[in-house]
């Protein structure tokens, strides 16, 4: 007679509802972002309810902050960086506005984003250049290209009325920017959570060599990630150009840091392997709501910058890995001091 014995290991050993909640929570990375968003929503609802009354404006700000961040997250999940997103946004807009035919212009702009992503990926995965350096070079090259193409001046759309119409609400109070943002979120979320190629981003970011050993086409995944990032950045450029009726070669000057901030607040790990698109959405929402609330409340610029800086620092330092690391360092220091008198 055989007897089966079940041995529970790790988190599986935790029993009950609380244990299951802890198990699920431990797998997610959005916890701190979600907590921050909840706090912001509650405080803003109490002190500046106009933020939610005029929700279409707030959604517009979230979309402005978040759309590039969503694409960027695809790269961050693989442990890479894409510093060229803001320049991609600018050059795509300029290319679009420089072509008289609007449809052709949009196609050319989006194709530009894909090509930029391919070039970035080529340097990172084939040539082997660190993504920080490769995309930094691309940042400068594309910004210069935007100036050259635009002759160093804003380029207006041939038909400004189309652009102004694009900025109007399409469904209820929702503008095309908000709807496109939602579609981009759904598309990337489905890709990284339901599609095999997308799920492999986490493996590539977690341990690249292990991913190669497991037969994952790492180079192809890096190409896919950078192309998503480039495409979404160029899409943001198209939207901005349509809404403003003009392409500005200096556009996107505040986009890059805002995108990274949204991803970090949303719990994405810059070294790759951990994170989520939902987290980035939460981070963008937190930042967007906060920015609108602070604008409406009239909080001064320096105070706002301190505020956001503190939130980012808290978001980074409350990471359990960081806390464990600090605790370990303190332990080592204490042990060292304890030994030193006798040595």
């Amino acid at each position: 007679m055989s007897q089966t014995q079940t041995i529970s290991l790790g988190s599986a050993a935790q029993e009950g509802v609380w244990g299951r909640i802890r198990t699920v929570a431990s797998r997610r990375t959005e916890g701190r972002g979600l907590a921050l968003l909840a706090v912001i929503i509650i405080v803003v609802a109490l002190l500046e309810p106009l933020v939610f009354t005029a929700y279409q404006v707030t959604l517009g700000r979230i979309a402005l902050v978040g759309i590039v961040a969503l694409g960027l997250t695809a790269v961050i999940l693989m442990g890479e960086l894409d510093l060229s997103v803001a320049s991609t946004l600018a050059v795509s807009g300029v290319i679009m506005a420089s072509i008289p035919d609007l449809t052709l212009g949009i196609i050319a702009a989006l194709a530009t984003g894909l090509i930029v992503g391919m070039i970035n990926a080529f340097f990172v995965s084939v040539v082997g250049i660190n993504s920080f350096i490769a995309t930094l070079g691309m940042l400068f090259a594309l910004r210069g290209l935007a100036f050259v193409i635009s002759d160093e001046a804003p380029v207006s759309l041939t038909n400004k009325d189309v652009g102004i119409a694009f900025g109007q609400p399409l469904i209820g109070p929702l503008t095309p920017r908000i709807l496109i943002f939602v579609l981009v979120f759904i598309a990337i979320q489905v890709f990284v959570s339901r599609v095999k190629a997308g799920r492999e981003f986490f493996a590539v970011g977690g341990n690249r060599q292990a991913a190669r050993d497991a037969g994952i086409p790492v180079t192809r995944r890096i190409f896919t990630g950078f192309m998503i990032s480039g495409f979404v950045a160029s899409l943001a450029g198209v939207i901005n150009t349509l809404e403003r009726t003009t392409a500005d070669p200096t556009a996107g000057s505040t986009v890059l840091l805002a995108s990274f901030a949204a991803a970090i607040i949303g719990g994405n790990y810059l070294k790759g392997g951990r994170g989520s698109i939902v987290g980035t959405l939460i981070g963008a929402a937190a930042l967007g709501i906060l920015q609108v609330a602070l604008t409406l409340s009239g909080v001064q610029v320096p105070v706002q910058q301190i505020f956001i800086g503190v939130i980012l620092l808290v978001a980074v330092t409350t990471d359990p890995n960081s806390l464990r690391s600090v605790a370990g360092s303190l332990r080592t220091l204490r042990q060292g001091r304890a030994k030193s008198p006798g040595s």
């Binding site: 929570a25 431990s26 797998r27 997610r28 990375t29 959005e30 916890g31 701190r32 972002g33 907590a35 921050l36 909840a38 706090v39 912001i40 000057s253 505040t254 890059l256 840091l257 805002a258 990274f260 901030a261 991803a263 970090i264 719990g267 994405n268 790990y269 810059l270 070294k271 951990r274 994170g275 930042l287 920015q291 602070l294 604008t295 009239g298 909080v299 610029v301 706002q304 910058q305 505020f307 956001i308 800086g309 503190v310 939130i311 980012l312 620092l313 808290v314 978001a315 980074v316 330092t317 409350t318 990471d319 359990p320 890995n321 960081s322 806390l323």
Partner: peptide, 27 residues
């Protein structure tokens, strides 16, 4: 925000990142 995040960091196992900064609205 600081209190909640700090409290959350103790129980949550999420990972975050390196330093970053935010342009944020400079209003």
């Amino acid at each position: 925000a600081a209190l909640t995040l700090a409290a959350c960091g103790g129980s949550d196992d999420s990972s975050s990142a390196d330093a970053g900064s935010e342009d944020t609205a400079a209003e």
